[in-house]
Simulated assay, not measured.
Amino acid sequence: MLPQVMATRYVTPLREGGSLPGIVEADDLGTYVMKFTGAGQGPKTLVAEVVCGQLARRLGLRVPDLVRMWLDPVIGKGEPDEEVQELLKASGGLNLGMDYLPGSIGFDPLAYAVSAAEAGRVVWFDALVNNVDRSWRNPNLLVWHGDLWLIDHGATLIWHHSWRSAEAAAAKPYDASDHALAPFHPDLDAAAAELAPQVTEKLLAECLADVPDAWLDGEPGFAGPDAVRAAYADVLAARARTLHERITLGPPTPDRPSQAPGWLTGKDGDAR
């Protein structure tokens, strides 16, 4: 289970993306990037963050530590921004915190070289979770203490916005042509040989156990949180087996509109 902390001070919003995360201090004296259950996509975005963050960590990729973060909406009373106030009021209770990496900088492919092996592992992982939001347009990568860190996985596992599509999602191809690390010639064969055997039933169960029941309970068509966890595991296990055969890498397409869903870009409120 993820450690739990209490939010003690809302510091500032991060006005990137559609979910309006914020920098928050907690009672363990840590500083976190907090994502809120009251944001547009609700708990599903937080579920994706937990599943992907814990899975990436177990596969040897660098992601900020995650915590369950309890929020008392009263801390938003002094916030002058009405949008932030409403978000905090709507997010009382359990939310998600990601360790804030002070001094980190956004990834720039012209300033930071990535080996083919590391690029291959990141691209393979993103294909596994069907990440539509790590392109050259928006890398969602940080460089911290000279290392590459993966952040912001809210736009993954997108089949969970419509479970009817889950079976098809297991065999869905992944076009990595616009991936932020595509220029570094990702070694996908080596990544598949290293990572696919690690995506076991046990590993997936461990990652999914870290998702709070409250964020899974009440999902239509499921008997309870454990049934939802099993559905996530089924899709991810099936994808991992032959994933490398369905990843394509072609030339980038600078003139093509972003493939991220409308709810992420702010152009459409429909998650499906």
Score class of each variant (00 low, 15 high):
residue 267 K to L: 11
residue 69 M to N: 00
residue 38 G to V: 02
residue 163 W to D: 01
residue 141 L to M: 04
residue 265 T to G: 11
residue 116 A to Q: 11
residue 56 A to L: 02
residue 227 A to V: 06
residue 232 Y to K: 10
residue 198 Q to H: 08
residue 268 D to C: 14
residue 170 A to F: 03
residue 94 L to S: 12
residue 67 V to Y: 12
residue 113 A to K: 03
residue 227 A to I: 05
residue 162 S to I: 05
residue 155 A to I: 13
residue 235 V to T: 02
residue 109 P to W: 03
residue 98 M to C: 15
residue 26 A to M: 04
residue 70 W to A: 14
residue 202 K to Y: 11
residue 170 A to V: 04
residue 197 P to H: 03
residue 251 P to W: 08
residue 124 W to A: 04
residue 208 L to D: 13
residue 158 I to D: 13
residue 62 R to C: 08
residue 143 V to I: 15
residue 193 A to L: 13
residue 142 L to F: 11
residue 38 G to C: 04
residue 197 P to A: 05
residue 89 K to Q: 10
residue 235 V to H: 03
residue 234 D to Y: 13
residue 184 F to H: 07
residue 145 H to M: 08
residue 175 D to Y: 14
residue 78 G to Q: 09
residue 128 L to W: 06
residue 227 A to M: 05
residue 14 L to E: 10
residue 263 W to H: 15
residue 228 V to L: 11
residue 256 R to S: 13
residue 79 E to K: 07
residue 160 H to G: 02
residue 4 Q to Y: 09
residue 102 P to K: 09
residue 233 A to V: 07
residue 54 Q to L: 12
residue 157 L to Y: 10
residue 260 A to Q: 12
residue 149 W to R: 09
residue 144 W to H: 15
residue 150 L to R: 00
residue 161 H to N: 08
residue 149 W to C: 07
residue 165 S to Y: 09
residue 36 F to C: 01
residue 142 L to A: 07
residue 253 T to L: 11
residue 5 V to W: 02
residue 71 L to Y: 00
residue 188 L to E: 08
residue 42 G to T: 09
residue 190 A to F: 01
residue 196 A to H: 09
residue 218 G to F: 15
residue 114 V to L: 01
residue 20 L to N: 14
residue 79 E to V: 15
residue 143 V to P: 04
residue 174 Y to L: 10
residue 34 M to G: 03
residue 5 V to M: 01
residue 82 E to P: 02
residue 117 A to G: 07
residue 83 E to N: 05
residue 51 V to M: 05
residue 121 R to G: 00
residue 99 D to P: 00
residue 176 A to N: 06
residue 19 S to I: 08
residue 13 P to T: 06
residue 26 A to N: 10
residue 217 D to C: 05
residue 241 R to N: 02
residue 235 V to P: 03
residue 10 Y to S: 02
residue 6 M to V: 13
residue 175 D to G: 14
residue 43 P to G: 06
residue 14 L to D: 09
residue 136 W to P: 00
residue 116 A to I: 03
residue 153 H to L: 11
residue 130 N to G: 02
residue 41 Q to I: 12
residue 59 L to M: 05
residue 43 P to C: 06
residue 113 A to R: 06
residue 165 S to V: 10
residue 253 T to H: 15
residue 238 A to F: 02
residue 226 D to M: 03
residue 56 A to R: 02
residue 109 P to N: 02
residue 6 M to N: 11
residue 259 Q to P: 03
